[in-house]
């Protein structure tokens, strides 16, 4: 009997131990053995921050119909209804060929300019066992303006064209904050003044801060390093993204009316902080057209 007591005590203790484990999760051990690995998505609401390409891509088989408007300067006052009497626009269709490659075509009323681009994702930010700290994308495009020229020597198709390549590197730092840097190289086949250069390097940046699930504050900015006329200014846009299901409304104030890379980099000469601000909006409607 004496011998039995400690044995029983011990086995009871053992049972207790087993029971203690019981109240913990059954999944313990198994759940931890699977390395979590997930892609970080939703750094921006749309494939454009405002003017610039963002870290986002269209999903495979998705068509994004975008209508962009840039109104006149707000500081023109009530006579021009704070700029709303005049507008330039760009219409575009973007399409996701795969989840990592998309193409787009557009046309702006400013200079009657066509543009086309291809954009690809090289790296996608992810966390877990295969952690990638940032996303890296590349966009390349071309523009050609078709407005009638009154120059003595008419520019041909080649003279009217420009090309750009842009790298977009960025990170979604938290649920709310995303930031990207987007250096760009632009080449125009013809320039208007001798002080301009055909090839220019541009630094770009963009950010968004989510204030609620469906509303975010965004900004994008570009600075040409050299080769643009002295009266050129850096395009700066500050806006609000509002997402409602398949639509994204990007409302913003900006000092540029250009809506493609050539236009907003080389055709901006208004000073944001002097009040030369224009109201504008981008409307994006996404359709799933292929499986």
């Amino acid at each position: 009997m004496k011998k039995l007591i400690p044995s029983i005590f011990l086995s009871l203790a053992c049972c207790q131990l087993v029971n203690a484990q019981e109240t913990e999760s059954l999944l313990k051990g198994i759940e931890d053995s699977i390395p979590p690995n997930e892609k970080v998505t939703g750094a921006f609401k749309s494939t454009r921050v405002i003017n610039a390409h963002s870290l986002e891509m269209l999903g495979k088989g998705h068509l994004d119909f975008r209508i962009l408007h840039r109104f006149g300067r707000v500081n023109q006052g009530i006579k021009q209804f704070f700029g709303l009497d005049a507008a330039t626009m760009r219409m575009s269709f973007d399409y996701g060929i795969t989840d990592n490659v998309m193409v787009g075509i557009g046309r702006s009323t400013l200079r009657k300019e066509y543009d086309a681009f291809i954009k690809a994702r090289i790296l996608q930010q992810s966390k877990g066992s295969k952690s990638v700290p940032l996303s890296l994308l590349i966009a390349a495009g071309s523009t050609v303006w078709t407005e009638e020229s009154f120059e003595p020597v008419k520019p041909d198709f080649n003279d009217r064209s420009a090309y750009y390549v842009q790298l977009i590197a960025g990170r979604k730092f938290s649920q709310r904050l995303s930031f990207q840097l987007s250096p760009l190289f632009l080449h125009r086949n013809m320039v208007e003044t001798p002080e301009e250069e055909k090839s220019i390097f541009v630094l770009g940046g963009g950010a968004r801060y989510k204030v609620s699930k469906r509303i975010a504050i965004t900004a994008d900015y570009h600075h040409a390093l050299d080769g643009v006329p002295d009266d050129n200014t850096d395009p700066l846009s500050i806006g609000v993204d509002i997402e409602t299901g398949g639509h994204v409304f990007q409302l913003h104030f900006s000092n540029t009316s250009g809506m493609n890379e050539r236009a907003y980099i080389t055709q901006t000469n208004e000073k944001f902080f002097n009040g030369d601000i224009r109201f504008g909006f981008n409307l994006s409607r996404i359709f799933k057209i292929r499986k």
Binding site: E22, S25, L26, L27, E31, P36, E38, K39, T41, G42, G59, K60, H62, D99, K213, R214, E243, G245, G246, I286, K288, K291
Partner: peptide, 28 residues
């Protein structure tokens, strides 16, 4: 034996045919 059952489901593992829906499902 004890008649206990547990599941754990990672939300990001849900795959939608429409990737925009998937994003809204996760984000919103």
């Amino acid at each position: 034996t004890g008649g206990k059952i547990e599941f754990s489901v990672p939300i990001k593992g849900f795959q939608f045919e429409n990737s925009l829906m998937q994003e809204h499902f996760n984000e919103n």
